[in-house]
Every structure is written in structure tokens, then in C-alpha cells.
């Protein structure tokens, strides 16, 4: 993947203030669109950038309408699992974070009743689900894998999350971050995965816990998750803030 040039925030600030005012007044675009604009470099042309982000935001809404909470992603027999499974990240395999599962915890914040951090052992006490689904990369390739873990809707219920909130955001040990719309977060196949093909997640595939969401493109399935938040403030995402479509549903 090619590297992207990021606009330095202080360079873009005056332009953004102007833009924010204009957008706020004009069409009440969500905070999401504004946040997305801050780190964007889709094209050198300012006008093109804005038009493309407006369209991307429009496509978010179209995809939310197309999304069904009950429609399931196709599942496959174990014989279809891709072997070997491909490593993919925004860094080399050598830089995969080295995490101690015994001391690891996931922080919980935002619109939830219970903000107690979660250890691996405690996550294992919750009901577990398994799925063999296709992981589709935004680049066009795909592979089939098996993930098991806690359905996110079970977890959200357990921590007393306000499921009327708009977003569930995740941050990771490798400084990756992403976010989901609430309907997708509550989809039955969205899981906090602890195992890959019957064994604890290998470091390459997100040890000790990763998100697995087959109703979205692969980059939404964040690895090495360290925090979860339920919020109405658009959390963005590592790639989303650089221009990937936020909803990216399949």
C-alpha cells in the first residue's frame, strides 16, 4: 500500500474553521464528516476533496439503509479455511506488538453503566460464538478464517451500554483505531474474537483480542484491541481519517 501524505493540523486549521462554519450552517452534516475532513488528502484539489468526502458521507448513509441487522454473512465448512492465512497490517510482521495476555486488560468507557476493565480470563467467562466467514480486504483479496469469541451485542448488554448511542469505538495496542455504527456493532456475527481456528489468536492475527465483523471490510476488524467506548462523538479510524469510506459495509 502506498504511503499517504498527511496535512499537518496547524496548516489546515484556518481552512477547516471556515469549512466547519460553512458546513454547520448549510446542511448540518454530522460531526463525522467534519472529523474525517481533518486528516484527508484524497486529492490536491480542495474542491475535489470536499466533493469526494461529501459523496463518501452520502455513501455511508446509503450503506446504513442497505444494512440489515438480521442478514448474515455466508459461513463456510472448515475445509474452506484459507491456509496459510495472510498477515496484513500497516506495518511489517516484525513490528507486531508483543502483548502479555496475563496482564492485558481492555478498558471500557463512554455511555456504559459498568466501566470495569476486562481481563482475558473474564472475557472467557462470557458466552462464546464461533464463525467461519470470509474476510474481505478493501484491496480486493479475501480469505476464509474461523474466529471465536464473545458476541459484541452480548458484551454491550453485559456492561450496560446505551445501545441508542451512535458509535462503538476501538483503540489498539499498535496505535490503530476504528469505529462501528451501533446497528453493525449489534449484528449477531460481530464478535470480540479470542480464538483463531480453535486456538488463542496468534500475535499476527491480533492477540489477545480482536474485533471480527464479517459485515464490514477487513480493516474494520481491529486487532490487539485495548479499549472500547460507546459514544455519540464520531471516533473516526486510522484508515478512515485518511480517506477510506467510514461505513465500509459488505
Amino acid at each position: 500500500m502506498r504511503r499517504t501524505t498527511l496535512i499537518r493540523p496547524r496548516d489546515a486549521a484556518p481552512e477547516l474553521r471556515k469549512l466547519e462554519r460553512r458546513l454547520m450552517l448549510k446542511s448540518g452534516l454530522s460531526l463525522g464528516a467534519l472529523t474525517m475532513l481533518t486528516g484527508c488528502d484524497l486529492n490536491d484539489g480542495d474542491v475535489f476533496d470536499r466533493a469526494l468526502f461529501a459523496m463518501s458521507h452520502f455513501n455511508d448513509r446509503v450503506q446504513a439503509l442497505l444494512f440489515s441487522r438480521t442478514r448474515l454473512a455466508a459461513t463456510f465448512p472448515a475445509s474452506r479455511i484459507t491456509n496459510p492465512f495472510r498477515f496484513n497490517a500497516f506495518y511489517d510482521e516484525d513490528d507486531v506488538p508483543d502483548i502479555d495476555g496475563a496482564t492485558w486488560t481492555m478498558a471500557v468507557s463512554g455511555l456504559v453503566d459498568d466501566k470495569t476493565p476486562w481481563s482475558l480470563a473474564r472475557l472467557r467467562t462470557l458466552p462464546q460464538e464461533s464463525q467461519i466467514t470470509r474476510h474481505i480486504c478493501i484491496e480486493g483479496w479475501s480469505q476464509i478464517g474461523e474466529w471465536s469469541g464473545v458476541p459484541l451485542h452480548v458484551f454491550l448488554k453485559r456492561i450496560g451500554a446505551d445501545t441508542r448511542a451512535k458509535y462503538v469505538g476501538f483503540t489498539c495496542a499498535d496505535r490503530y483505531y476504528t469505529s462501528l455504527d451501533m446497528p453493525s456493532a449489534l449484528h449477531p456475527q460481530t464478535i470480540l474474537a479470542l480464538d483463531f481456528i480453535g486456538k488463542p489468536l496468534p500475535p499476527d492475527f491480533g492477540y489477545p483480542m480482536r474485533l471480527r465483523i464479517p459485515t464490514k471490510l477487513g480493516f474494520k476488524s481491529a486487532k490487539h484491541v485495548v479499549s472500547l467506548s460507546v459514544t455519540n462523538t464520531y471516533p473516526g479510524g486510522y484508515w478512515e481519517d485518511q480517506g477510506y469510506n467510514w461505513f465500509s459495509g459488505t
Partner: peptide, 27 residues
Amino acid sequence: ASPLLPFIFPPWMTLGGWLAGAIAWHF
């Protein structure tokens, strides 16, 4: 970004600059 055949289209023939830009243009 993930060629099907053993060739890629030269960058001067493409639009978007990189994958995110190309997808934004395409959609």
C-alpha cells in the same frame, strides 16, 4: 492494490493517487 493478472496499470493511467482516493472517486 491487488492485481488479478501479473501486471498493474501504470500510475499515470489511474485516478485517485492511492487506494482511498481511487475508491472515493469510484463510488
